[in-house]
Structures are given as C-alpha cells and as structure tokens.
C-alpha cells in the first residue's frame, strides 16, 4: 500500500501533494497498472487530513487518466508514467538555456528566480 507524506508547511495544497506523490510512486514503479490506491478512509486515518482533500486528489488523477474509480471496489491505477523526461528534447533545450544564462553572468539564484517567475507566468497556479 502506497503511503502519502503530507507536509503542512510546504505551502503546496494538500491535494496537490497527494497528486504529486501518486505520480512519483508511478514513476518509481511503486504503483503499477491494476494496483489499488488506498481508500480515502485509509489515507485520512494515516495522515489525519480532510477526506474531501483525498477525494479531490483522486478525482484529479482520474481526470488525467492515470487512475480509474470502480464503484464499490476502489480506485485502480490505469497507466504508468515514464521514468522521467530527462532525455527529451525539452530537457536539452532547458540545458542549453541554463548554459546561456551562466555565460550571461547569472548566478544560481538569479537563474532560479527567473525560471520561477516565467514558470508562474506561464503556468497559473493550480494548473498542471
């Protein structure tokens, strides 16, 4: 049974943490298609978070097509996630960008701030 670690001080909404950790578990192979996710009851008993938050996270995962709720049986994993897009063309472009930033005289913090602000601009909060 996969476990969720909820960090109340992270500033990340609780349901998002569940979504992200489920995806993480899929990437790490902790969850495979056909596996059952813990029930809302099991999650809240272990984490002491609001049940509606867990249901919201599961709905989100279902919307993304990663899991499927089967009435009366539970929520089951539909498909797995790749081991991470480290070798995709996008990663290559980002690496190029980082190198250009360094040669342009940006230090690590500057680059991170710039990245973050563009991220915030392009991906509104709550979007995935």
């Amino acid at each position: 049974m996969v476990e969720f670690r909820i960090d109340r001080r992270s500033g990340v909404a609780t349901y998002l943490q569940i979504v992200q950790q489920t995806k993480q578990a899929l990437r790490l192979g902790l969850l495979e298609p056909g596996d059952r996710l813990p029930t809302a009851r099991e999650v809240v008993e272990a984490t002491a978070v609001n049940p509606n938050t867990v249901l919201k996270a599961y709905r989100e995962l279902e919307r993304e097509g990663l899991v499927e709720a089967r009435r009366g049986l539970g929520t089951f994993v539909q498909k797995s996630l790749g081991a991470g897009p480290a070798d995709s063309p996008l990663a290559g472009e980002l690496t190029d960008w980082m190198r250009r930033a360094r040669t342009a005289g940006l230090d690590r913090e500057d680059a991170a701030a710039l990245f973050q602000s563009v991220l915030d601009q392009e991906f509104s909060e709550g979007e995935r």
Partner: peptide
Amino acid sequence: RHELTGALMATAAE
C-alpha cells in the same frame, strides 16, 4: 493528536 484526528477523519470519510 495525529492518531485521533486520523480516527475522526476516517469516521467522516466512511
């Protein structure tokens, strides 16, 4: 506190 909140939430979920 964690355990009882969990029990409470489990009751609510169920």
